[in-house]
């Protein structure tokens, strides 16, 4: 079964590399959304520094959401999902493998781009490490929750909007603690409690989300 999961991750990574534009688009969106804010709230450095963490998190969250709709959709439409379900891996494992590949191809570039954007948003350099750490702990949770949503809307009319409606409210806890971690480091408070909360959310999502996504895929195939 591990070989089968490895095969899925390998195939999805290869597909993402071949169609490199798709994951690049998420990063471009992320950059654009962040660049809009200095125009929206004014370029005063102290204003930007105060909202930088929130802007970065919200933009990263929306960028990750953009590509989620296609997570299972392509495999669902071309019949691959049927064949995956008929293979040795159970549906939760298939969902987990595809979510892992999605995280590697969309969230990792976002995390890499985040410090650069933090720089132009005037976030104090002392907060960079906590920003990256919070993103590393928080974005997998976003992908896992998003994976459940993507599996639920398979075959729905207007799946994209529906996906946002389902998933964004569930993103709120990650957003709260992700921003709080960066904010705490900005004013010199302890960052660990917030990071621990993010880690706890990740653990809960790791345990529950693949099962829920698997159940949703089962409904989609039936």
């Amino acid at each position: 079964m591990l070989a089968a999961i490895g095969a899925i991750i390998g195939r999805d990574l290869r597909l993402a590399l071949r169609q490199g534009l798709d994951s690049l688009l998420a990063v471009v969106f992320f950059v654009l959304a962040c660049v809009l804010f200095p125009f929206g709230v004014g370029p005063a450095p102290e204003t930007l520094a105060r909202i930088a963490a929130g802007v970065l998190w919200v933009a990263a969250l929306l960028a990750a959401l953009l590509s989620l709709e296609r997570l299972f959709q392509a495999d669902y439409e071309d019949g691959s999902l049927d064949l995956l379900a008929l293979g040795p891996a159970p549906l939760p494992a298939i969902a987990a493998a595809k979510i892992a590949a999605h995280w590697l191809t969309t969230s990792v570039p976002l995390i890499a781009a985040a410090p650069v954007l933090a720089l132009i948003l005037n976030l104090p350099p002392a907060a960079f490490s906590s920003l990256v750490l919070a993103l590393v702990l928080g974005t997998p949770t976003l992908s896992l929750i998003g994976g459940v949503g993507a599996a639920l809307v398979l075959g729905a009319r207007r799946g994209g909007v529906l996906l946002a409606l389902l998933v964004l409210p569930l993103y709120i806890p990650v957003l709260i603690f992700g921003v709080a971690a960066v904010g705490a480091s900005q004013i010199g408070l302890a960052v660990q409690p917030h990071l621990f909360m993010l880690a706890a959310l990740l653990l809960v999502a790791l345990v529950l989300a693949p099962w829920a996504a698997g159940a949703a895929l089962r409904q989609a195939l039936d």
């Binding site: 809307v153 075959g155 729905a156 159940a215 409904q219």
Partner: peptide, 21 residues
């Protein structure tokens, strides 16, 4: 979600998973 599918039974089951999540 429960009204987003042409087959109502499919929408109900998807929504049921969401309710549990």
């Amino acid at each position: 979600l429960s009204h987003a599918f042409d087959d109502p039974a499919r929408g109900q089951r998807a929504a049921a998973v969401l309710a549990l999540v």
